[in-house]
């Protein structure tokens, strides 16, 4: 497949210079390398700037409710396990509004890849704090600066037993596309948290700010070592990008028996005989 096989006719409605363009390019590159056709892919999103992504990539898409991409995506995959399911979501959508689903879908471990456009601010609602905003960041709603502790997505995912945890940076497109591809190939819930500069509302975490702090995780890091992964994830001064943790574990599809049967969607429902069950109600 070629990158432009995934071009959408719908023009992007993001601000010029938005980090989302980098993520879009990285995702298309990863999809081209994956080699699946748009028909085999399902992009699922909630609401927010990140959640517009499915409109801008040629594939099946489900653009649902704010915070609710994960349950819809998990069930769409359960219904047809042959789909490659990718969720594009933001820090507000996934870690705020949808926080409960983030927790429990890591536990559920349905095979899907969750790309979180983490710009540490609310874009679509114009500049309020997000769950990952830095303490002290001033906004119109938080004029004295954010006082809530930031939500730690990587550490949370690791603590919940997520089998694939990675972090990318929107400006490092090639590197990010490799992370996304590795996430898609991992069987189970894969988290790719992506630093995404917001040029309109986040004046703190700018391209320059990230450039000074991010560094690529080197080959010396053992991605199957959870303690080492936790240490990396906890870094706050310098910010590691790359695969933080990756280890195979049984997916929902394997544990539920779904993998052993044809996709649910292919089942014949025209001739279901309920009479054997009725015999129990005497």
């Amino acid at each position: 497949m070629k990158i432009n096989d995934f071009d959408s006719a719908d023009p992007a409605a993001w601000c010029p210079g938005c980090g989302n363009f980098g993520i879009q390019a990285a995702l298309k590159t990863a999809l081209a390398k994956l080699g699946k056709e748009p028909r085999e892919l399902l992009l699922v999103s909630g609401i927010g700037q990140a959640a517009k992504m499915p409109h801008y990539i040629k594939a099946n898409f489900f653009n649902g409710l704010h915070g609710r991409a994960l349950p819809a995506a998990a069930a769409a995959k359960i219904a047809n396990r042959e789909l490659t399911v990718i969720v594009t979501t933001g820090d507000g959508d996934c870690y705020g509004e949808g926080g409960n689903h983030f927790i429990h879908n890591i536990r559920r471990n349905v095979d899907m890849t969750v790309i979180v456009h983490d710009n540490q601010v609310y874009g679509l609602t114009k500049g309020q704090a997000s769950p990952t905003s830095e303490p002290g960041m001033k906004t119109r709603i938080q004029p004295g600066g954010v006082i809530l502790a930031p939500f730690p997505p990587l550490e949370t995912a690791l603590a919940l037993g997520c089998g694939f945890v990675a972090r990318g940076y929107a400006a490092e497109r090639e590197h990010l596309s490799e992370l996304i591809l590795a996430g898609i190939r991992h069987k189970g819930f894969s988290l790719v948290d992506v630093f995404q500069p917001c040029v309109s509302f986040n004046k703190l975490n700018t391209y320059e700010w990230y450039a000074k702090r991010v560094y690529k995780v080197g080959p010396e890091h053992d991605v199957s070592d959870k303690a080492a992964a936790m240490t990396l994830a906890a870094e706050r001064e310098r910010l590691p990008i790359g695969v933080i943790f990756s280890k195979a574990k049984p997916s929902y599809e394997e544990l539920s028996g779904l993998d052993a049967v044809p996709p649910l969607v292919d089942g014949d429902i025209a001739n279901i005989d309920i009479t054997p069950a009725l015999a129990d109600f005497r």
């Binding site: 399902l42 699922v44 489900f62 649902g64 409710l65 609710r68 349950p71 819809a72 995506a73 998990a74 069930a75 769409a76 995959k77 359960i78 219904a79 047809n80 789909l83 649910l264 969607v265 089942g267």
Partner: peptide, 11 residues
């Protein structure tokens, strides 16, 4: 939302 997602997939 799961019911809606599964239905979207065709079950």
């Amino acid at each position: 939302n799961m019911a809606v997602g599964a239905s979207f997939s065709g079950v």
